[in-house]
């Protein structure tokens, strides 16, 4: 970019970092020289692979198994991270689940899993991190939203509601933390080539592509670039914003 992003030596926490967009975010921060701790819920093998590949490049990446739905587990991960690195400079709330179903058929479990992971989980980890940022009068929080927060497809009432909540949470927290110079922004990806969006891409096919101005799906790294930009010193004057990384979704 324009030279030094200011991220070398910074401490970054990423939730849901073992796969897809989260993994790309972990890898890009690590490449910028940040010390990255990521949370993963399941998939120990994938998490170990991220750590191993980072280590091979000489990057500092730590994996922590924790479910963001558990506030005590979130607090413990944050405290261990602070003990290791002395602070938390950047938090990326990335972990989320999709349980698509038409509203009348939506199982209570499909609603609760989505809201508890995508919304309550964000509250849990953010509440554990914010005190550290407040006392240091610095910090950057980036929430991964989705185009679904504004324009969802069929069967996405639960997921769309969770991402709409994240957009509102982002703006409200930006107001609350601005006096302490902590910025809070969101990145809203469109259809990105990950295993999580595979079903949607398969189901919607050409119909989905026809709604994307750039006529292709996004790559995880293309979302990570926006996240790392918002965490960098180049974005010090940006807060309360939702940045769409969606190839121009539904603009035609």
């Amino acid at each position: 970019m324009l030279g030094d992003s200011g991220l070398a030596g910074k401490t970054v926490i990423v939730t849901g970092g073992s796969r897809g967009i989260g993994r790309a975010i972990v890898e890009l921060f690590a490449a910028e020289g940040a010390a990255v701790t990521f949370l993963y819920r399941a998939g120990r093998g994938a998490a170990a692979d991220v750590v191993q590949q980072a280590a091979a490049r000489g990057h500092l990446v730590v994996a922590e198994q924790a479910d963001v739905r558990d506030p005590a587990a979130c607090a413990a991960v944050v405290e261990r991270c602070v003990a290791r690195h002395g602070s938390v400079d950047v938090l990326v709330n990335n972990s989320a689940v999709i349980r698509d179903n038409l509203l009348p058929w939506l199982e209570p479990r499909e609603l609760s899993e989505v809201l508890e992971t995508n919304v309550t989980g964000v509250f849990n980890i953010t509440r554990a991190v914010v005190p550290h940022m407040i006392t240091r009068r610095a910090g950057k929080i980036i929430n991964i939203s989705s185009v679904a927060g504004a324009m969802a497809g069929r069967g996405q009432t639960n997921y769309a509601a969770s991402k709409g909540a994240i957009n509102a949470f982002t703006r409200a927290l930006a107001v609350e933390l601005a006096p302490r110079k902590i910025t809070v922004n969101a990145v809203a990806p469109g259809l990105v080539e990950t295993s999580m969006s595979e079903q949607i891409r398969d189901r919607a096919g050409d119909r989905a592509l026809s709604r994307i101005l750039l006529r292709r799906y996004g790559q995880p790294a293309e979302v990570a670039y926006a996240v790392v930009f918002l965490a960098s010193r180049f974005a010090d004057y940006i807060t309360g914003q939702i940045v769409y990384v969606d190839g121009g979704f539904k603009m035609e």
Binding site: P131, I134, T135, L177, P179
Partner: peptide, 15 residues
């Protein structure tokens, strides 16, 4: 002080 400062004070005292 503002309300967020009170939080900051409490966090510092706890530590």
């Amino acid at each position: 002080a503002e309300s967020i400062d009170l939080l900051d004070i409490v966090f510092r005292l706890e530590r």
